[in-house]
Amino acid sequence: MRTASLLLCLAASLASRSVAADRAAARSGPTLPNVLLRTQDNKPVRFYDDLIKGKTVVISFMFTSCKAICPMTNVNLLKVQRALGGHMGRDVFFYSLTLDPKTDTPEVLHKYAKAIGAKAGWTFLTGKAADLESLRRQLGFTDPDPKVDADKTQHGGLVVYGNDAVGRWSVMPSLADPTRIAAAVTRVIGVNR
């Protein structure tokens, strides 16, 4: 039984390897899952095709009932938004994905976005728990310690940013100095020109 499951795992991993390798061969940057999500306006969107493809983006995870780290991240991201000025919604898009899709329906996210004063170009997203979990893992909002990983508040402290057009991605603490985050994001837009 153990051998069989190991073999199965091997087969699965080999299959996923060839897909990943083919993708890597065809593109310079990582390929992100194209799962279906919903915006705070209840609009269905494909994660890769509609949100990422060809764009410079800033991605964070949050949940509306999060009391400590998420509000601090949001306050910081609002400052980053301000610093980015006219780039927001034109060259740069912010995406905040919920870690608690059960509670965070589009309506709840809509209210939340309004309450914190998110400006144009900042979209809040929910979807199926399994899809959001897959995105969380692939974007690296994880911890190898299962206890820490199970604590949702641990995943609100990062922002992934990148420019899909050139496959340049990186990640930063979301509480970093907002001018530093804005400068980093501007640097990756810069290489697009």
């Binding site: 060839s18 990943a20 061969a25 990582p30 974007l139 690296g140 990186s170």
Partner: peptide
């Protein structure tokens, strides 16, 4: 990768 290009995970 299969084509000998370097693989790097920017999210790790």
């Amino acid at each position: 990768a299969a084509d000998a290009s370097l693989v790097f995970d920017p999210f790790n």
